[in-house]
Simulated assay, not measured.
Amino acid sequence: MVEVALHHRYDRDGFALEAAFAAPPRGVTTLFGPSGCGKSTILAAVAGLLRPRQGRVALDGMVLLDTAAGIFVAPERRRCGVVFQDARLFPHLSVETNLRYGLRRAPREAEGPGFEEVVALLGIGHLLARRPAGLSGGERQRVALGRALLSRPRMLLMDEPLAALDAARRTEVLPFLARLRDAARMPILYVTHALEEVDALADHLVVLDHGRVLAEGPVAEIALRTDLPLAARRDAGVLLDCTVLAAPEGGLARLGFAGGELLTTLHPGAVGTRLRVRLRARDVAVAVQEPQGISTQNVLPATLAEIRPAGEPQEVFLRLAVGPSTVLARITRDSLERLALRPGMPVWALLKAVTFDHRVAAPPEHAP
């Protein structure tokens, strides 16, 4: 487990950080929030690149920082693999030499993946003879990930590693990050302000704003919170764990989740693939009678569990129970009154669109 409690201020009237959270011993803990909220400051303090005024950082019981006890472990002794927005590769060295530099920095007794395993994991075997100037932005970031992993760290720290990439390059790198997350047996702290990266990678989510932790917990639970700034986003919604039940037939793939099935025009993978689906609240409509003769094919029986205010005064969130799963719908107050909606009544959820992340939780042969 990673324990973080920090208090820091830049100058007398500067930015103030007052944040505390605990990250699970494995998987990706994402620090999420707008620019300037303190995400990178936290990462710098964990890495030892910043000495906060007050604080404590511990990894699996080993204290890396405790200002009250006068403990400050030097950055090079913390064994944190750090990946920044820019890859920071040595321009005069080949990809292979850059990677082996990370391997040379690994403690002799440290266990971890070998050179060939990391190269295969990140799909960079064909790049080994090249120099960084001959790589795309996405390729450089994959090499930087490999170098960090080969240093055999006890923890990986990623500071918005995709922020400098365009949409195409981000799409290229995300599957490799997901593969790395599933292969690494260590905690990963990942800084981002991009919700698509949260959906694709996060297991645990820490929501920050103005230097404070607003909420932390499993990402699916935080996504359901309508009292957080996340709910004000137009892409706010829930995350469902799904399994591909049928490959596209007539252009549609069939997904199963705890509560029903979904049809989608996207191509989420082979039968048995497990993935996470974001259902945006604005894409969910409700009906008080079972619809007939409509084009929408995802019509799910549900129970209206709760009505909550939304960020806009003329809108509300509906929490819909679809079997054991919860779906959020965002509708106008006019619709709420016109349909006489109230908690406990049966409704039908109409899902106009679903969006997918890149997470594959298990290979098809191991899927339930």
Rank of each mutant, 00 (worst) to 15 (best):
P313T: 01
R280W: 06
P301F: 01
A285E: 12
R278D: 04
L328T: 08
R278N: 13
N298C: 05
G272K: 06
L328A: 12
L300M: 12
L320A: 10
E312S: 04
P301W: 02
L341F: 10
L328D: 03
Q289F: 03
L266R: 15
L336M: 02
E337N: 11
G293T: 10
A285S: 13
A305I: 05
P291K: 02
A302L: 06
T326G: 05
S335E: 02
R278I: 08
V316E: 05
P313I: 00
L318D: 11
I294A: 09
D283C: 11
A329M: 09
L266E: 12
R280T: 05
R338N: 08
L320K: 05
L320Q: 05
R274D: 01
L318S: 06
L279K: 03
L328G: 08
R278W: 05
P324L: 03
G269L: 04
L339P: 00
A270E: 14
P313S: 01
L318N: 10
P313W: 00
R280L: 10
I307R: 09
A310L: 00
T326R: 14
P268M: 04
Q289G: 02
I307D: 08
A285N: 04
L279F: 05
L318P: 02
P343D: 03
E337M: 12
E337Q: 15
I331K: 07
R278E: 07
R319S: 13
A281C: 06
P343K: 13
D334P: 06
I331W: 03
V299S: 11
R338I: 01
S295K: 04
G323T: 04
L318R: 08
G272T: 01
R330A: 11
V288S: 14
A310Y: 00
Q292L: 08
P309M: 00
R276C: 11
V327Q: 04
N298L: 01
T303N: 02
A310T: 02
L300R: 09
P343L: 12
P343R: 14
G293S: 09
G269R: 08
E315G: 01
V299E: 12
L318C: 07
S335G: 03
P291M: 05
A302P: 09
P343G: 13
R280V: 07
G293R: 06
R338E: 13
G311V: 02
P291C: 03
L318H: 09
Q314M: 08
A340S: 14
T273L: 04
R278Y: 01
L300W: 08
S335C: 07
P268Q: 01
R330V: 10
E306Y: 08
R274S: 11
E290K: 13
Q314E: 15
T332M: 11
L304I: 07
S325M: 03
P324C: 05
N298F: 00
Q297D: 13
P324S: 03
L320D: 06
